[in-house]
Every structure is written in C-alpha cells, then in structure tokens.
Design a protein around this nucleic acid. Sequence first.
DNA 1: AAATGAATTATGTATGACATAATGCATTAA
DNA 2: TTAATGCATTATGTCATACATAATTCATTT
Lengths: 236, 236
Amino acid sequence: MTDTYKKSLNITAVDSSSLVDKVEQILIDLLISEKLNPGDQIPKELELTKMLGVSRTVIREALNRLKTIGLIESTKRKGSTIKSPDLLFLLRKSLIPNILDQATLKDIFELRLVIEIGMSDLIFERATPDDIKELEEIVKFEPDSTKEVLFDIDHEVKFHGKLYQISGNNTLLDFQTILLPAFRYVYDSRLIESPEHDSKWVSHQDLVKILKNGSATKLRNAMRKHLDRHFRGYFK
Amino acid sequence: MTDTYKKSLNITAVDSSSLVDKVEQILIDLLISEKLNPGDQIPKELELTKMLGVSRTVIREALNRLKTIGLIESTKRKGSTIKSPDLLFLLRKSLIPNILDQATLKDIFELRLVIEIGMSDLIFERATPDDIKELEEIVKFEPDSTKEVLFDIDHEVKFHGKLYQISGNNTLLDFQTILLPAFRYVYDSRLIESPEHDSKWVSHQDLVKILKNGSATKLRNAMRKHLDRHFRGYFK
DNA sequence: AAATGAATTATGTATGACATAATGCATTAA
DNA sequence: TTAATGCATTATGTCATACATAATTCATTT
C-alpha cells in the first residue's frame, strides 16, 4: 500500500454496533416520535422481522431490552404495548452497593444530603397535624444527643423516611427506599466516618419543633445543621 | 365443587413468571452475594444452560437484561464480566418525556427545585474563583428582571448547569443533563404556568454576588427565593 | 524477531419447530 | 336464553441446531 494510495482513501470508522443495537435504537426512535403514546401497540415480532430484514432473534433481543428498561410490556397473543416507564424501577435493580464504585457511592450519599435540605420546603408546606404527631412519636425514642451513643441507623431511617413521605413526592420517596441499601453500605463499610454529635447539633426533636412552630426557612437551615456531621466528612 | 371442598383447599397463587424472569433473578442474586465484584467473570452461556437446565435462548435473554441495566458486559471469546453500573445511563434511556405520565413529570420537576436548593452548600464550598468569574460572564447577559420578558430557558440552563458542575458531584451533573428534556417538555407543554418575576425576586446576578461575598446559609435561602416562582405553581 | 496464518473459544445471528397463554367463537347443557 | 365448555387462532415464550464473527493463542514462515 503506497502513500499516495493511503491519501486517496477516505476511510470512515465502520459501524461496529451489533444488529440488536441498531434495532433497539430504531425502536426507541419510534417511541420518541411523538406519534406514539402509552398504551399504543407496536408491530408484532414477525412484522418487525419483515420490516427490518433481520431475524426474529435480533428483534426479540431488542424488544427484550426495551422491556428491561420499562418502555414496553408484552403479553401473549396481544403483542407489545408502550408503557410509561417507572424510572426508579431500573435503579432498584441495578443499585447493588457492593458492585458500585466508590465515587458513585459517595455521590449518592451526597445526593441524600442535598435532597433532605432542599426537601424542607415541601415538608413544611405539606405536613399535616397527623404527620407531626407521628414524628413526635418517633422522636420520643431518639437517643439523647448529649450522650455518646452509637449512631442508630434504624432510628435515622424511620425519622427521615417519614420526612420523605411527608414531602408528597413519590419519586423522592421511592428514591429513599432504593438508596437505603447504599446508605447502610456506606456506614457499614466505613467509607465515611461515623457521625458524632457536638454541642450545636440539631436533633430530630429540634426539627419537629421547628416544623411545628417555625418557618420553611428555619426548617431548611436547621436541616442543614442537623446533617452537618455528615457534611463534615466532605468539607476539609 | 362443594363448600366443604372449597374450604379444605389451600390454594396459593402459581408463579406465572417466565423462565427468563427466574434466571434473571438468580443471576442478580449471584451478583449481590458479596463474593462477586466488578471484573469478576460469570459462567459461560453453555455452562449456565447446564447449571440451570434451560436453553441457551433463555440464558441469553436473561444475560441480555443484565447487560441492558449495565450490570455485566460481554465480549466474544471472553464471556461476561461484572461491571459497576452507570446508574444515570439507564435513566437517560428510559426518560422519554412524552411517554412519562404527568405525575412523574411533576415529581421530576419538583426534584429539580429540591436539588438546587440543597445543592447550595456544595456550591458554596467548592466554587473556585474561576467558577465565579464564569458565572459572572453568564449573568452579564441575563434579561433584566424588572422587565416583562419571556422566560429564557436557554439562559436558565446555562446558569444552573454551571452550578451543577460546580457542585463537583458527577451524579448530580449527569442528573441535570438527563432531566433537561423533561424540564423543557414541562415548560413547552404548559404543565406548569410560565414563571413571572416580582419585586422580591432574586436574580442570577444576586445569586452570584451572594456566592462571592455571602455565606452558605444565605445562598441556600436566596436560592429558595430565586426558585420561588416555580414553587408558587405548587403551593396554593 | 516480527509478521502471518490456522485453530480455538465464546458470543452473535439465523432458522425452524413446538409450547403456552390470551382471545374470540361456536357448541353444548341447564 | 344463558352460562359454561371446548376448539381454533394468534402472538409471545422456549428449545435445538447450525453457522458467523471477534478475540486469543500458538505454530509457521520470512
């Protein structure tokens, strides 16, 4: 092969994606194309084999992927129909703490702090008297903040879980339950140091009082202080 | 069928899940079992057919699902290895605004507000002088807040996108880019009313000033005010 | 010693056959 | 007439087999 020959060539990278990859993308494009809505049917497997000119195996694998990410569902005789995907369903499946890399685990943990502070406004607006009563029940058993006690993750989960529920945002609530295994894993594996209380610490009981008698702004800032022991693991 | 006969029956619902469903779960359980880590190999397809007593088709479909949610990857000759999944990659694929139901869209929009308020602490701690300079560049072109102007979503995205980047949390940053289509969709489809400025509105320019000279708490509360026009779509 | 080529191995694709669940329709029994 | 039963149909679910293709190893050649 001579240099001149090389120069005359105009080589473009070959498309190394598999057939299934291509079919998958074609189908996703089909779904995105505004014309299709949840409940609509997509062509049968055999029709797709004819339309796209690939084997049923390939069609099935591509459909299987869409099914996996919750974009379609299939039933016998009926074929496949478009579905409004449950975003968190995927996270639920793929979030296996021991195979997540540490950077992602840390990000997730941080995400929790971010969400719980930002959530204050939703909580303050949406908490009902019954909700507050329930919170008061929960914090009755809160470990004394002045004493050196083990960090009680179960109590933690109970209290903050209730907050997520009060937020009235189902996506957030699901988020919390899904991320919980990751949180526990982070604590258990000592990826961050176990939190300690200090004098200025805002307890759960304090939070409930503020929720009852304070303002959204006060709650927001108190929540930040409450979580401070976690933040300190990150900042200097 | 007599009543006495009915009573004596103790019928439990049959397991109607497909073979692929079962194999998928078996494999996921295998991954969860602490002993397996990223990089580890899992048995070959033919080995699995023997171990589980199902056809290669079923094995392949189950493996294909794990591949789809990013738990494994496969190469020819080498087989399949465990992978630390990219959580956001999944969201990216399944988040197709026009087939999401409205409740989820609303949740997502709300999630954005929550995150941006809660993120203030990360931003304040991690913003470098260069970051602040860049922000100042961006807000130079900010529409005047006293005038009645169209809500400029591109400018919005530019400014807040930079904030996500400053947060130093890659998961958050990805989040934002993924959720963006959903945001745009919410605005375009008028699911929430278009925001209007009022006298007490905190502008982007105000935010940058506070980031430069204020405190984390001030930034947090200012961000809440900045986003207030969105919140007002939700509360009363 | 480097380049080439053949054998090997495990995933990727194709095809045909049959199993199974859902549905509609015809038939039957009360 | 009506409800129950059985049958045919249809599209997905599963199986088996064959071959294609990419990655790796190792022997062969220059």
